[in-house]
Amino acid sequence: MSKNVVTANSVGSVSLKRKKVSRSSEIWMRMRSKKSAMIGLIICSLLILVALSAGFLVDYQEDVVTPNIPERLQGPSMEHPFGTDSIGRDIMARMIYGARISLCVAFAAVIFQLIVGTLIGAVSGFYGGKVDDIIMRINDIFASIPNLLLAITIATALGHSIINMVIAIGVAGTPGLARLVRATVMSVKDQEFVEAGRALGGNDRQIIVAHLIPNCIPPMIVEGTLKIARVILSTTSLSFLGIGIKPPTPEWGNMLSGGREFLRVAPHITVIPGLAIVITILSINLMGDGLRDALDPKLKR
C-alpha cells in the first residue's frame, strides 16, 4: 500500500513539472492547429513588417505627399500597382505609409488603454468597497457614452493630430477595459491561492505582483489583440468622417474618404484602402479568436 502511494506521488510530480514547462508550447500548439488563426498571424506579421520598413520602401516627400497632377486618377498599372489618387499620388506608396500610421495609432491607443484601464480596474477590483464604488461610478458614466461618440467628442475638441487621435481613441476605450480588468481581479482575488498568499503574510503589493497580474494576463492578451482591430476601425471611421487624421498625411480612412467623389470614374481609390482595412481587421480578429481558444482551457473539447 505504502509503495503504491509513493509511486503515485512521484508520477504526479513528474507530470506536474512537465505541464509547467510545456504550457506556452501547448498554447502555441493549439494556436498552430487552427488554420484561420495562423493565416491571421502571418498577415499581421507581414503588415507589421511593411509598416516598419515603410521608410526604406518609399520616399515620403516624393512618393507619398507630393501631388503629380498629370498622372491623376489612373487605374492600376505596372508603374502604379494600385493606381493613383485624385492628385496623382501613387496609392501603393501611400498605403505603405498608411499602414505605418494606422498601426502606430492602433498600438499606441491600445497600450494607452491597457495601462490606464488596468490601473483603474486593478485598483478598483483589489480594494473594493468605497474606492471601488467611486471609481466605478465615474467609469460607468464614461462607459455610458458610446465609444465612437466619445472619441469624436475628444477628437473634435483636441484637433486632428496623430497624438490627439491616440488620446481620443485611447480614452474612449478605457472604461470598457477597466471594467474587464476589475471583473477579472475580483474573480481571482477570492480564489484560494490568493488567500493562501495572504495567510503566508504577503502584503498587497506582493499579492498584486505575484498573483493578480499573472492571472489577468491571458484575458488581457486576448482583449488587447481584439482591441487593436476595434481601434483600427475607430481610427479609420474618424478619418472617414473628417474628424481624424487629415490629408495629406496618408491614413487608410482618409484615403478612402478622398476617393468618394471619384467613385464613378476611379473606384479603385475607395476599393483598395477599404480592402486593406478589411484584411487587416479580419486577420487581427482571426488571430484574437485563435488566441482566446488557445488560452482558455475551458473551451478545449
Binding site: T236, F240, G253, L256, S257, L263, T270, V278, L282
Partner: peptide, 22 residues
C-alpha cells in the same frame, strides 16, 4: 459573421453604392 465584424460599414456602404447605384 467574421467578415461582418471586420468590415467597416463606411466601406461596405460605398461598395454597395458602387455596385447598385453606380
Amino acid at each position: 459573421a467574421m467578415l461582418g465584424v471586420s468590415t467597416p460599414n463606411f466601406w461596405l456602404g460605398l461598395m454597395l453604392m458602387l455596385l447598385f447605384a453606380v
